[in-house]
Nucleic acid binder design. Structure first.
Lengths: 377, 377
DNA sequence: TTGTAGGCGTTATCAG
DNA sequence: CTGATAACGCCTACAA
């Protein structure tokens, strides 16, 4: 891509240029105090003249650490609103070449999602932002990676970092098997277990319980259904808490949660439409996530069902998009940015001492019910 | 941070465990076709048993490339809304230890910015998101870094990547001097120049011109001032275009742009307040960026000035926060995500052929006026 | 204060 | 198809 030029300059080149040994070059960069100011100057000047920059790979090899923290997301987590691009287009050949020279018109920029509130950051983005922010404060670079399970990608990035945080995925257990045992790892939203990995998660039960309390106590709803596949630890915990909470109020949860999938025979749209046709729509849809809730909002609008008048809808997560939907989304917000930061601190070793008798962190954050309009408030 | 355990397993360990040579181990991972299926299986099994993952540092050293693309932001770009944390708190010791074991209450999570629309992604975040997205599609990891100029940070990350994109900064020229000449580089929003670096930028003149046309033609405004320091290439271009456009309409631009700084003797708040006191507030404030505009909105609200009735305000950039302000912000949106993607493609070498006779890309994107309410519409 | 030499874990080359 | 062996670029005792 660039002017090939000659090969990258190394310590040897700089040493020769400056008329010193390679050790002096190294010292000039890393141990300023162990070298005379004069030679240091000479070395730095030579380095600049040659366009030299130390190779992180070589340094990493030499002292056994890369200095980078990593954050990995499996492809499944990267689903965007558009169902058509759920399958991540890998070797993407369909993009037109960059038409440099002329001004690139707006129409070629794929920025038309502007009007779609779902263009807003999702769960992953917000956690990631917190992670990156904390790393910035610590002065450490972050590497972001993604990949499917079949790839060696997780193990691959594990090889580049001093610590790795990983988003949840059905394929996580498999992937973890291929991971080096020696590198510190934080798992987001994964059930506690015997493995040596740290955890950062949210108190799903507490959040769901508070939400159901609001729906039943403050609104008097008694026909409350759950939307969202039980897939994943978070969703399962939320579903369990939904059941428990309703039961506590003496109400009967609907037995089968409504499926939250986007495609396939059990698509949410199809199910809601069937329920609507048979006049069996529940009074409230408690959704496993905000994304489910936003999808439900769309589906209901398409059916001509009014929210919250006919059906109330709630989400979980508190992503920004929920503030822009119509109606605005009542949800249970988890402190995503804080969770991302916590993971970074754990990996960087700045999270403080481990709790008494523990060998790893299990940080459970309290969520908070955020009441907006979709619940009927 | 982790259980120290013994040291990380290497090819030698795996080779011994599997009873083969280290070359076979390497082949098992990288050249499956050049090795018998049987030994490959044996090697992979051994590797799994040992918790082995190849070291990216060593690989990078061996074949001269890291496979990573980088994105660097100078600290100044990371300013957030809160003026109190403009100085980036580096070795941050004030954060409490992570209170694992119990549920971490909301109040300790720093997530209180929830109600502040400025918690939304800013310019840097949106570009970064596009960059990361494109890298994901290309299957390449991204490294995010930041630092001040005095640091070696830019050169430092330059040493870790195969290509580097850099956000604008007053200190950029200095930093570039310390950069290795051999690594492909993309500069965002930087004036064209003789250097070998690629450019990704926006047509400031076209955008500003269209905006002024709207203000003058459709609203009939004739007293239009500019807000925002002239610092930086983008802002300077926007200011120049503001002057030119007004002149073209036969109007007189105010000579001195209103300063957009957050602190110091020329704070925007102070200046607007003085203008207000002397009854000299302009009819329209054309701001260099959305962040300036949002700040102006706050300042005017505090003064009891109605927007857009008394004073109209416009921004530039089109960040998401402008959709949530009161009133919503009329702005000139640049396709930030597309710009981030373009940078990634240039660095990855998937941007297509260079334009005839060019040695580097200079991708200029067209912005688009987004009319909302702050202009009086 | 400066130079020499060995090692870090892979990949690549070249024999066998 | 497999196994030695030499880079790769930097760091760091250790020696001068």
């Amino acid at each position: 891509m660039s002017d090939a030029g000659s090969r990258r300059p190394t310590v040897y080149d700089v040493a020769q240029e400056a008329g010193v040994s390679i050790a002096s070059v190294s010292f000039a960069f890393r141990r300023p105090e162990r070298i005379s100011e004069a030679t240091r100057e000479r070395v730095l000047a030579a380095a600049r003249r040659l366009g030299y920059a130390p190779s992180a790979a070589a340094r990493g090899l030499a002292n056994g650490r890369t200095g980078i923290l990593g954050l990995h997301a499996f492809d499944l987590m990267l689903e965007r609103a558009d169902p058509s691009d759920i399958a991540p287009p890998r070797p993407d050949t369909r993009r037109p070449p960059l038409d440099a020279g002329a001004i690139i018109p707006w129409s070629q920029t794929d920025d038309e999602t502007l009007s779609d509130p779902r263009a807003f950051p999702l769960y992953v983005d917000e956690v990631q932002r917190g992670f990156a922010l904390e790393c910035w404060m610590l002065g450490r670079p972050v590497v972001l990676s993604s990949g499917s399970d079949s790839d060696v990608s997780v193990a691959d990035t594990a090889g580049r970092v001093d610590g790795l945080a990983i988003f949840p995925s059905p394929v996580l257990p498999t992937a973890l098997l291929r991971m080096p045992a020696t590198i510190p790892t934080v798992l987001f939203s994964v059930a506690p277990g015997d493995d040596p990995h740290h955890r950062v998660r949210v108190d799903n039960a507490g959040g769901m319980s508070a939400l159901v309390d609001h729906l039943v106590r403050d609104h008097g709803y008694d026909d409350v259904a759950f939307v969202g596949r039980q897939e994943g630890f978070d969703n399962a915990e939320r579903f369990a808490a939904y059941r428990a909470s309703l039961t506590r109020w003496g109400l009967r949860p609907r037995d089968e949660p409504i499926d939250g999938t986007v495609r396939g025979p059990h698509r949410m749209v199809e199910q809601l439409s069937a329920l609507h046709a048979s006049g069996a729509l529940p009074r409230v849809l408690v959704c496993a996530t905000d994304q489910h809730a936003l999808m439900a909002l769309d589906a209901l609008a398409a059916l001509g069902v009014r929210v919250p008048d006919d059906v109330a809808v709630t989400g979980f997560d508190g992503i920004l998009a929920g503030r822009l939907s119509t109606p605005t989304l009542t949800s249970v917000r988890q402190p995503m940015e804080a969770m991302g930061r916590a993971a970074a601190r754990i990996l960087a070793g700045t999270a403080g001492p481990l709790p008494e008798g523990q060998t790893r962190f299990d940080a459970v954050f309290a969520p908070r019910v955020v009441i907006r309009h979709s619940c009927g408030c």
